[in-house]
Design a protein around this nucleic acid. Sequence first.
DNA 1: ACAAAACGAGAGCACTGCTCTTGACAGTTT
DNA 2: AAACTGTCAAGAGCAGTGCTCTCGTTTTGT
Lengths: 238, 238
Amino acid sequence: MTAKNIRARVRDELTSEIKAIARRQLATEGANLSLRAVARELGMVSSAVYRYFPSRDDLLTALIIDCYDELGTAAETAEAAVDRADLLGRWLAAGHGIRDWALANPAEYALIYGSPVPGYKAPETTIGPAARTTDLILTLLADGVATGALTTGGAEPAAVAGHGSPLPVDLAAELDRIAALACPTVPRELLARGITAWIQLFGVVTFELFGRFQNMIEDSRRSFFDHQLRVMARHIGL
Amino acid sequence: MTAKNIRARVRDELTSEIKAIARRQLATEGANLSLRAVARELGMVSSAVYRYFPSRDDLLTALIIDCYDELGTAAETAEAAVDRADLLGRWLAAGHGIRDWALANPAEYALIYGSPVPGYKAPETTIGPAARTTDLILTLLADGVATGALTTGGAEPAAVAGHGSPLPVDLAAELDRIAALACPTVPRELLARGITAWIQLFGVVTFELFGRFQNMIEDSRRSFFDHQLRVMARHIGL
DNA sequence: ACAAAACGAGAGCACTGCTCTTGACAGTTT
DNA sequence: AAACTGTCAAGAGCAGTGCTCTCGTTTTGT
């Protein structure tokens, strides 16, 4: 009885320890981390690790899920600290939360937002944790619509007027489909702008982490990111 | 004399063939392509390949340079086909040129714009070819300024008015520094908007290629990309 | 108390990047 | 024409990889 719990607990501990070591090696080795090296650092033999993760890809999947969850909670907690009515503040907090986590965990960010691993196919279990950041933004939009702060029809805020190019018909249809099952209250024009902002947010972080800003933006990266967030906030109408 | 040229030519041909095979394997194996597999497919022994590329990283560097150059020419030729006075058309052509090349060569795009290879440090020789796409955009901005079509001071185009958030001082200083040595005629506000558009352009392509649009934008990806290009064109003031 | 499940260790297979050595040519010089 | 020099492909070998299988041992459930 209790022995069973001991066994299970040891197993959980070892599983966590394997993941922790793998995370640490991820920083230096990148996506092609070595299962054997993990085992070596753990004082085990490589074949023993296979008792805990049936393959290297399964270890990678576990790490990916953990990273998505960490990033999600980082963004959520940062955003939750802001007054609900302050949509701009919530957007800025979520954005900086994402960037801060990415800067603190560059290898992990590269793992989940970098180039897909050739043979690796992300299983279904990753899409839930992966959607947390986007859900956060969608909720932001929905809240804005609910309170009337955000709108694209009728009387538009001055900052938004004229921003939008007309949506192509096929894109409009697809946006309606997305909105129907993800955020029914958000009109398609607003959703389109939200997606633009979403891409820009992660685009800036990705460029910064992948060295695209070298010899360009060096000393004002945080300011630059903040500026981009505000440009996008204006675009959305926050 | 001529025999020496023969020798050199054979060497060049084999070098090209190695790169060609490596490019083909890149599509299936990703960044961790196998030098031995390339040699095998070539009917050579792995050690022989080292006569042509002193290490695997050097092969990778050669591929990266080739890809940057291909992408650069793709963007340049697409943009060159448009009337010089049609700034919006030039922007759209360059953008679609980049996306089309990326869609046709997804593995190559991932190689140059994906997560950096862990141990790999891009040598100086890559920055020249890498800058071709950004130079194209900067030239676009400079042309717009030269003809008076683009401006951010004084009388702004209606579509641009109110778009900009004020630039933080440190960012403004850095933008001035960039402009001074890359595009002296472009005012910093316009440069900032150009960078925003630049990031958005590659952000959309990256998201599309890395599977970020799955279960979202499926059937209207080209329309979506075109829409994003136009939104950014408005943001710049094209 | 006994069978079943879980576990760590080790050997082994096919693969990788890379180094070193060997032997066969080609081009140049004497 | 002979000797020399540099280039080349081939092979063996080293250390590392993911993964599978087998073998005793330990722990668990009945």
